[in-house]
Amino acid sequence: MRLNGINVSFLLSLLISVCLATAQKERCYDTGNFTTNSTYGRNRDQILASFPANVSSNGGFFTATLGQDSNKVYALGLCRGDSSSDICYSCINSSMHKLIASCPNQKEALSWGADPPCIVRYADRLIFEVLDLEPTDAGYNTGDVPSANLTQFDLVWESLMDSVVKKASTGSSTLKYATGEADVTTFLKIYALMQCTPDLSQENCDSCLRQSAIYYQGCCHGKQGGYVQKPNCLFRWDLYPFYVSNASTSATAPSLSPPPATASPPPPFSTNTTIKRGDGGIASQTLAAIFVPIVVIFIVAVAVIAVALLLKRRKKTRQLQDVNGKLFLDFNLFVGSLAS
């Protein structure tokens, strides 16, 4: 739909993006409070103030502690894997200030930042190398996947998510991040991004991302894109590219080609074993498999037609002979009758 030359769908999607970007992304835990100007409060503010520089200068991930015993603060920061240093700094800085303002005296809190997201967490307990699946933040696009493509779409979607989960969870101790894309049809492609805090083990990262995908299917199946964010992992997918692609972090695109037919003997006239051509043409073995049966059928058909024509000619010859014989007999009888 267009209005005065402006694509209304584009404006709606832009509006949705703005709303998602400005939505509340902070979570204040109810596990305990501290008093204003307490030692814990000062430690929290101090450690969070150092995070924009520390996270952005350490590859997008940083952990730290400050204080002792009950005043000890554990803090963690993560930027999305494709964020530049400047974007990372900006996201962590904004999230840190919003977190302090939104949770002024909570001993534990979490922020997922804006778009692209980043994670800022602090707590009065150990949060490093620990899998936390709650709380969860999720959202989706309001458009629906075309129902005619939904079955095939689901197959491609699930296969792609599995590939991206495996790629992300097998990352390093400094980066567990992956993206991937897959074609549903010629004009429909799925893009996906997944990331864990790299302090998680491969098993815990895998679990966090799969739980995120399951959560999305439960709340938002059939929608044209969305996201799920947990304390230890980020997940998003859409029908357009929304990340900076990098070959080193790209998962292998899934292949959902139909299984090959039962093997059969090679064509009798084909000796070329070429299977694949890089230019996208048909393999010579495939051409032989196509044309050899056609040639055989053509030869058989010609032979059948030739035999049929020969039999037809012989039949006509016999009929002509029979007619001539009958005429000759009738003529002799006629002459005989005149003589008598």
Rank of each mutant, 00 (worst) to 15 (best):
F61I: 00
E134L: 12
R313L: 00
D115E: 10
T274A: 12
T317D: 12
T273L: 15
L126R: 15
K230F: 03
S163V: 01
Y40V: 05
A64M: 12
C91R: 04
D82Q: 08
N58R: 00
N149H: 10
V292S: 08
D124Y: 06
P267K: 12
L155K: 14
K107W: 12
L256F: 03
L333R: 14
I127K: 00
I275C: 14
D86L: 12
G225W: 11
T186D: 14
W112G: 01
C220I: 06
N37T: 13
I299S: 03
L287C: 12
Y40T: 04
Q321E: 11
S38F: 06
A109I: 04
T174S: 01
A289C: 03
G225V: 14
T142H: 09
A308I: 01
E203P: 04
Q321M: 07
Q195S: 02
V304T: 04
K189M: 14
M161H: 07
R236T: 10
F291V: 15
C103T: 09
A306M: 06
G218Y: 12
R277W: 10
S173H: 00
Y227R: 05
V165Y: 03
N246L: 07
T174E: 02
Y240D: 13
D45I: 15
Q319A: 09
E134C: 07
T36H: 05
T271V: 13
A339K: 04
L311W: 05
Y122S: 02
R80M: 14
W237M: 14
I119W: 01
L131N: 07
I6T: 15
N43S: 14
E129P: 00
A114G: 08
L200W: 00
A101F: 11
I214A: 15
L12V: 15
V55A: 06
N232Y: 01
P293E: 06
P265T: 11
Q229H: 10
S172R: 02
P268K: 14
P135C: 13
Y89A: 13
I294D: 09
Q217N: 13
I294R: 13
R125D: 00
V184A: 01
G60Y: 03
A306C: 07
P231E: 08
S201G: 08
S95C: 06
S212E: 01
I127G: 01
L320H: 04
L126N: 15
L110S: 04
D86R: 12
F10Y: 12
L66N: 06
T179Q: 05
V307I: 13
L14G: 04
K276T: 02
D154I: 07
R236A: 11
V145A: 08
L76C: 01
G281H: 03
A182I: 09
I305Q: 02
V55E: 01
C196I: 00
D183V: 01
A101V: 09
F291A: 13
C205Q: 03
